[in-house]
């Protein structure tokens, strides 16, 4: 079984993120680039599946030149090879263009399963997995908290507000995972040393068969018009108990979907 894991390099999750004032895109210089945390769960799940069923894990990323660090981290965790899709024409792509570019890059390889994290910690749209499945014409099994493969059939627990749905499909398929699914391994010394020798294929838009007019900031369907600093935290809601404090508290928690 060949599994492609799509990963993204993002600004350090714990750092305060800023937008560049002129282009209103993320200021990638202001914080360390790291592998999107949620993608580590996708890599871990792919590794576990190939450990159980045999096969190999290919890690694919789209990003600027330095994004090979994200690929290397995945390789040091145990992925077998990498694909780095990088081209100035892709800068500023929105989710629609990203899903198109990734779908085209996936066309350069064979696979039985595509696994993604359910969201990136920078944009947090959770759109790419579903769009990618649509582009590839494959079943989408998103927000998976458990994945099981039996022959060519795949079953996942799809996390919902009320618990989970059990969703089944035939391979090949696109899966996105949530952080409840597993505990990602730490790269080992051996893994880090071995990662150096693993093959990473470099693709640009031409090699991936991407129409440059359909990607990048110019082609984005959405435009960021303005951005402002988040206002400081407000004081919150004070409930004065006049005999109905419990009810008001329950109403508040219910409105926030805590209960």
């Amino acid at each position: 079984m060949k599994i492609v894991v799509c990963v993204k390099q993002v600004p350090d999750t714990e750092a305060e993120k800023r937008l560049l004032p002129d282009t209103l895109t993320v200021d990638r210089e202001s914080s360390n680039p790291v592998l999107n945390e949620m993608d580590e769960f996708a890599i871990e799940e792919a590794l576990k599946l190939t450990e159980a069923h045999g096969g190999e894990v290919v890690v694919l990323t789209m990003g600027p030149d330095g994004a090979d660090a994200a690929v290397r981290k995945a390789l040091s965790m145990g992925a077998h090879s990498g694909i780095l899709l990088s081209d100035p024409a892709l800068a500023g792509s929105d989710a629609v263009a990203t899903s198109y570019a990734i779908a085209q890059a996936l066309g350069t390889t064979e696979y039985d399963l595509v696994i993604l994290g359910s969201e990136a910690s920078d944009a947090r749209t959770s759109l790419v997995p579903a769009m990618l499945a649509e582009r590839l014409g494959l079943p989408q099994l998103t927000f998976a908290s458990k994945v099981e493969i039996d022959g060519t059939s795949i079953t996942v627990n799809r996390l919902t507000d009320y618990g989970h749905d059990v969703v089944q499909a035939q391979l090949p398929a696109v899966v996105s995972v949530v952080e409840k699914i597993n505990e990602p391994r730490y790269p080992s010394f051996k893994g880090i040393m071995a990662a150096k020798k693993k093959p990473v294929a470099a693709l640009d838009v031409a090699a991936a068969g991407i129409d440059a007019a359909l990607v990048g900031q110019a082609a984005a369907a959405t435009t960021v018009v303005d951005a402002a600093q988040r206002p400081p935290r407000s004081a919150g809601v004070k409930v004065t108990d006049e005999g109905d404090g419990g009810v008001k508290l329950a109403e508040f928690l219910s409105a926030q979907k805590f209960i």
């Binding site: 290397r72 790269p187 880090i192």
Partner: peptide, 11 residues
């Protein structure tokens, strides 16, 4: 590689 390993130990 040494930095990557240090970071893995740290995490």
């Amino acid at each position: 590689e040494q930095r990557d390993f240090r970071d893995a130990v740290d995490s």
